[in-house]
Write a protein that binds this DNA or RNA. Structure first.
Lengths: 341, 341
DNA sequence: GGTTATCGCAAAACCGGTTCAGCAGTATCA
DNA sequence: TGATACTGCTGAACCGGTTTTGCGATAACC
């Protein structure tokens, strides 16, 4: 019933704990016959190292952490995090390193979690997501000296290594596509303004629209379906109705599509729609949504690799993942040329 | 830079580690003035207990685990898990107990994870989800003696305590609602047949339909949007078209709705739709989906409470949560009386 | 053949907590 | 006044690993 320890193995083999340790870790210090004998006994007893003892001894927790502080309600809908986590796992499971995952109520609670995890040596490092402008978490993590990899723009990551994709490039891709189809009046339903990448996108869209000579407008939102639909109605019912809409996440795009159809508008005939971040959600609806796609799981795996290096003491640089690509589906098309002034 | 230990506190206070331990844990053995002095020093030094040392000493990991082995692609869409996790966290965070969360490729990998976590004492217990008929994981967990709470039907949980809702009752609620509206030909797009609750629902639907004198049919599916849409098209284009459809999850319901509308059918005029498990997804679409709602986060919190008891050595019984209730939205209505034979 | 490496292992310290046995010193009581 | 109890702390063992030091025996070398 009781789990076997190295002491048990040592007794059976007639050696000391130390010898068993050497044998099991493949280190010099024991003869080959003895090593085999010890390994056989360990196998027979089903021995597994006690993680607490290992952690205490070598001073590392052999675990990483991830805290998210979005409300659970919107969190559940975001395919993003599950994909990210599964990508992280895919990389971490190679070394059997588990992930501590927690949802926090707000940023203060999130920071408290970091302090606790690090103070108690529960983790060797953390993934930092949803980077904000002037992010309060960054200086805390820097001060703690906790190995961290920021998943997001390097500008917001301070001295922390960042794993990121170029949102400005993606913005140009999206706008280029729509402008190429002939759209001259384009609006975007954006994510929360506190998030740095929202700001980056906004600037990139504005700059690119200027260059292309198209009218462009940003409407702030919060990633939720409700606000996505509300923003959509406001834009479609207001003056100078845009002929194309870009959404900062797939949830808002879906609810925006529904809202537009509820107004009696046809997509894409009357208005084109484009989602930023692709997921199965975009294929669920009709018409399926044209989207900016990237491999989020792969992104997570990269982040995990960088974090492992950082926790190992290396000071890693930023890692830029490939630009998102456009997945063309049925929700974007040339605008019908009615009152195209 | 180095984290302070109890030894550091002891030195400053001029006492031994043991005294410090008593003081910090609020146990008798030190005088009140000494205790206050020690607490003050600990506070000043920002001391936090090393979790590995605590775990090694008291033989408990102070962490629980959750493994999911659905493919990441469908996982991301399911609001269910995020809500469940956030509910679990809400309960666990009270004691500062973190959750180890992992996605596994298949059941074998999941079982291997349990063996590893338990063998290495990484967790004090686990939450078991997606219970199947003749679930291979149950006997393994029983044999390991690992504290476990099954989230699902007691019938599939063996000797493990289960936290569950009565799916049969919910099935009657759903069918009663539709029959009450006048529907006489109803089909259900079910989840994976290996899952026990799918089978329970199927039986309950069949029995209840028999009693109510309505035609009923189950079509197997896999929870994915693709299959949900395919099953919907098959049912709506086949002979004896049903006037109402029930979906075993919200993702399939949404894609089924889209599929029906793609066929030129109006919901709910031509066909009513009802989703099992409510989420923001159901409100995202048009018409919003009538759904069987339950408080999943609360469900998770209950499971966490039971697991903590189980890990504490108590042998707990099953815990039944309230039956799901029907949230009426726009997707169900009386059938138009055309050829209602 | 004596010195020096090298090998194979024992013994013990260490990581940072918890806990138990023991021991002075004071208080209680007969 | 001596036995008894209690208080407040010390010292040490313990949890289960890793790592360092040391020692006897054999092998290599000049």
């Amino acid at each position: 019933m009781k789990r076997p320890t190295m002491q048990d193995i040592a007794q059976r083999a007639g050696v000391t704990k130390g010898a068993v340790s050497f044998a099991l870790n493949g280190r010099p210090g024991v003869s080959e016959p003895t090593r085999r004998r010890i390994l056989a006994i360990a196998e027979e007893l089903g021995w597994q190292p006690n993680s607490a003892a290992v952690a205490l001894s070598d001073g590392r927790a052999n675990a990483f952490g991830l805290v998210v502080d979005r409300p659970a309600r919107t969190l559940g809908l975001e395919p993003y995090f599950m994909q990210l986590i599964s990508g992280i796992q895919a990389e971490l499971s190679a070394t059997g390193t588990p992930l501590l995952f927690t949802v926090a109520d707000d940023q203060l609670a999130e920071i408290a979690t970091y302090r606790s995890w690090w103070g108690r040596r529960r983790v060797d490092g953390v993934f930092l997501v949803d980077l904000r402008v002037d992010d309060a978490r960054v200086p805390v993590l820097e001060e703690l000296g906790m190995p961290t990899v920021a998943i997001g723009m390097p500008q917001a990551a301070g001295s922390l290594p960042a794993v990121w994709t170029d949102d400005a490039a993606a913005a140009r891709t999206a706008l280029g596509h729509l402008a190429g189809l002939g759209h001259r009046r384009i609006a975007r339903v954006a994510g929360p303004e506190q998030l740095l990448h929202t700001r980056i996108r906004t600037e990139a869209f504005a700059a690119c629209a200027w260059e292309l000579g198209v009218e462009y407008r940003t409407v702030a939102s919060d990633y939720s379906g409700e606000q996505g639909a509300a923003a959509t109605r406001e834009l479609l019912l207001g003056p100078r109705r845009p002929t194309a809409l870009v959404y900062d996440n797939d949830v808002m795009a879906v609810s925006g599509l529904t809202a537009a159809q509820g107004l009696g508008l046809r997509v894409p005939a009357d208005v084109s729609m484009l989602a930023w971040d692709d997921s199965a959600l975009c294929e669920l609806v009709h018409p399926p949504l044209t989207a900016l796609s990237r491999d989020i799981a792969e992104h997570g795996a990269h982040a995990a690799r960088v974090l492992r290096q950082a926790a190992g003491g290396a000071d890693c640089g930023d890692l830029r993942d490939p630009d998102p690509v456009l997945t063309l589906r049925g929700s974007t098309a040339a605008p019908v040329g009615e009152d195209q002034s």
